[in-house]
């Protein structure tokens, strides 16, 4: 079973990397970019009987730093590329 974890910076936490990319997009002539926030996706291949609670603990204990980051996860259906 594939699970996709999305880790993003909490609202209010400055994202210097996102800001630099924002400037770069503007520099390339893309108008109307309001904001850029950069996060990461983590793909897990887990035993089929892994429950949400276990995935949640993986996120809390290691995959996300809850001081600065939020996380969410979704189970991917068969055939969907992770």
């Amino acid at each position: 079973m594939k699970v996709r974890v999305l880790v993003s910076l909490k609202p209010g936490v400055l994202d210097p990397q996102g800001r630099a990319v924002h400037h770069a997009l503007e520099g390339l002539g893309f108008a109307g970019v309001q904001d850029v926030r950069i996060g990461r996706t983590i793909e897990l291949d887990l035993a089929d009987d892994t429950n949400d609670e276990a995935i949640d603990r993986m996120c809390r204990q290691l995959l996300a730093n809850l001081v600065i980051e939020d996380y969410s996860f979704e189970r991917l259906g068969d055939g969907e590329s992770a």
């Binding site: 936490v13 400055l14 990397q17 630099a20 730093n65 001081v67």
Partner: peptide, 17 residues
Amino acid sequence: LTEAGLLPGALMRNAGQ
């Protein structure tokens, strides 16, 4: 130490990258 929870807060990428 911050990642281990012995100190509060976090150390992020330098503001100037």
